[in-house]
C-alpha cells in the first residue's frame, strides 16, 4: 500500500518539476519542451527513404510469389461504411474531454520530462516492457493458431532475456526476429468477433468494445503468469507507472492540436478503419467479414 502512495507522490513531484520548467505571467505562460533534433531526424528520414525505395523496387518480384496470389483482393465495394457504430457517443465524448484535460495537466508534462532522459536509458526501458509483453504474444499467437509467430516470440523472449540482459537490449532484432506484438483483441478478431461499439477508455483513449476487453485480458494474462514476480506487490505499481509514461512518451500526439471541434469524429473514423484493416490482415487467405451496406462500421 505504501508503494501506491509513493507512486502518487512521484507523479505529483514530476508534474511540479515539469511545471517549473517554464515561467508564467498572468496572461502568458511559457513552457520549455524537449529540444528538436532536425539534423538527426532528417538523416533518419533519408535512411528510411532509401529502405523504402529498395522495398518498392523489389515489390514486383515479390508480387509474383505464390503467397501473394492466394490473397483475394478487397474491392472498394467491400469497404465499410463511412459512418461509425458509436451508440455510446455522448459518454465517449465526455471521456475524450476528460482524457484531454488529464493529458495536458499531468500525463504529457511527465512524458516530456521523461523525453529529456538520455536515449539509451529510454530505449532500455522500452525494450524491457516490450520483452515482458512477449509472454502475452506467445499465448495469443498460439490461440490464433499462428505457431510460427508464436515460436518467433518465444525466441525473442529467450534471446532478449539472456543476451539482452533481462530485456534491456533488443538483440533478437539483429537475428531478424523483429518485434510483432499481438494481443487478446487480435485473437478475438481471428475467431470472428467484430470490433463492436466505439469506446473511449479513460486515460488510454480511442478503442472499441473488443479492444477494451483485449486490454483487460492482456493485463490479466501478465498478472496471472507473473513473470519474475514483477506483477505483485508494491513493485508492480512503479512498473505500471513507468510503462505508461514510456508508452505516452513514444506517441507524438497532442490532444486538440488540430484546434478543431471535429477532432473526435476524425479520430473515431480513422481508428475504426485502421482496426478493420488490421482485422483484414488477420484473415489472410480468406475474405474478411463484410459489413452489409447501410450498417455503420464496427457493428
Amino acid at each position: 500500500m505504501i508503494g501506491r502512495y509513493c507512486s502518487v507522490w512521484i507523479i505529483v513531484w514530476s508534474a511540479c518539476a515539469a511545471g517549473l520548467g517554464g515561467c508564467a505571467t498572468q496572461s502568458m505562460e511559457m513552457r520549455s519542451l524537449p529540444p528538436e533534433k532536425p539534423a538527426a531526424e532528417n538523416a533518419a528520414a533519408a535512411e528510411n527513404g532509401a529502405e523504402l525505395a529498395k522495398a518498392l523496387a523489389s515489390e514486383p518480384a515479390r508480387a509474383g510469389a505464390k503467397e501473394r496470389k492466394a490473397v483475394p483482393l478487397i474491392t472498394p465495394a467491400d469497404a465499410p461504411s463511412m459512418a461509425t457504430y458509436d451508440p455510446w457517443g455522448r459518454l465517449n465524448r465526455f471521456t475524450y474531454r476528460f482524457n484531454t484535460r488529464f493529458d495536458e495537466a499531468l500525463f504529457l508534462p511527465i512524458a516530456n520530462g521523461y523525453r529529456r532522459l538520455p536515449l539509451p536509458l529510454r530505449s532500455g526501458v522500452h525494450n524491457f516492457f516490450g520483452n515482458l509483453g512477449e509472454v502475452d504474444n506467445i499465448i495469443n499467437y498460439t490461440l490464433q493458431l499462428r505457431l510460427v509467430r508464436s515460436l518467433r516470440s518465444a525466441g525473442r523472449l529467450l534471446i532478449n532475456t539472456t543476451f539482452g540482459l533481462g530485456g534491456l537490449f533488443d538483440v533478437a532484432t539483429k537475428f531478424k526476429l523483429t518485434s510483432a506484438p499481438t494481443g487478446l483483441s487480435a485473437t478475438l478478431a481471428t475467431w470472428g468477433v467484430r470490433p463492436g461499439p466505439y469506446l473511449v477508455i479513460p486515460l488510454l483513449g480511442p478503442s472499441t468494445l473488443r479492444d477494451g476487453i483485449g486490454v483487460v485480458g492482456d493485463f490479466g494474462t501478465s498478472h496471472v503468469v507473473d513473470i519474475a514476480h514483477l506483477y505483485r506487490g508494491d513493485l508492480s505499481w512503479y512498473l505500471e507507472g513507468v510503462n505508461l509514461v514510456d508508452q505516452r512518451a513514444n506517441v507524438d500526439f497532442r490532444y486538440y492540436s488540430s484546434g478543431s471541434p471535429f477532432e473526435y469524429e476524425t479520430i473515431r473514423f480513422l481508428y475504426v478503419r485502421m482496426r478493420l484493416i488490421e482485422d483484414a490482415g488477420l484473415y489472410r487467405g480468406r475474405q474478411p467479414q463484410k459489413t452489409p451496406p447501410g450498417v455503420p462500421a464496427g457493428e
Binding site: V251, F253, I267, Y271
Partner: peptide
C-alpha cells in the same frame, strides 16, 4: 496503450 499508439499514428498521417 497500443490502442493510443495505433490511433494516434493514424491520425498523424491523416493530419499530415
Amino acid at each position: 496503450m497500443r490502442l493510443i499508439v495505433c490511433a494516434l499514428t493514424m491520425t498523424l498521417a491523416a493530419a499530415a
